[in-house]
């Protein structure tokens, strides 16, 4: 966690949003907010762009689709002169009642499943990496009730001129913050 933060604590998400709207219009950059549940609309006041995790998911899904098609088509790679793709290690064409071997309709279910498998797991793993979450990580809290019923707004003290700090803290208090303080 960053040092030198101005921390305002609210017990009502609506008042916190009013305060955020106000200081956002005053041009105060918000460092982060900590809330017990997702508060909708908060992104606009904090200049949070939409996450690109959806793009990551799409890319992983495409990888899953390609992997599935290579896996299944690779089984018949000798028959279709695809072995130069380096697929000969899985090539084992089976003749089952003389049915067509590269029956792509039969490949749809597994291609779909592997697309979903890669897209879902790839996206969630990417989320844990970008959010820097891992099992056993110690949570850095500004209030020990911020996961229960306290709504915390943190403002970067380095980006506020020291003579304006007092005014800002007063604005936050007027909006209903029950506690406004500075961290070391």
């Amino acid at each position: 966690m960053k040092s030198n933060l101005i921390v305002a604590k609210f017990w009502n998400p609506d008042t916190m949003m009013d305060a955020l709207a106000d200081i956002h219009h005053k041009g105060v950059p918000v460092y982060d907010c900590y809330t017990p549940f997702p508060v909708h609309g908060i992104e606009a006041y904090m200049d949070i762009k939409r996450t690109r995790l959806s793009i990551a998911s799409f890319v992983f899904g495409c990888m899953g689709l390609i992997a599935a098609l290579l896996l299944m088509a690779g089984t018949y790679s000798h028959l279709y002169n695809l072995d130069w793709w380096g697929l000969d290690f899985i090539s084992w064409p089976m003749d089952i009642g003389g049915k067509p071997s590269l029956a792509w309709v039969d490949f749809v279910p597994i291609a779909f499943e592997l697309t979903v498998l890669f897209a879902a797991h790839g996206m969630v793993i990417t989320f844990f990496i970008v959010a820097k979450y891992y099992p056993g990580k110690e949570a850095k809290l500004l209030d020990d009730r911020q996961t229960d019923d306290v709504f915390v707004v943190a403002i970067d003290g380095d980006k506020i001129k020291s003579e304006k700090e007092g005014d800002l803290m007063e604005v936050l208090r007027n909006h209903g913050a029950f506690d406004v303080s500075k961290t070391a």
Binding site: D32, C33, Y34, T35, P36, V39, I42, E43, M46, I48, F128, A131, K132, Y133, Y134, P135, G136, K137, E138, A139, K140, L141, Q146, T147
Partner: peptide, 8 residues
Amino acid sequence: FGWEGSAR
């Protein structure tokens, strides 16, 4: 996983 509930 160290969840802190940050808006981001």
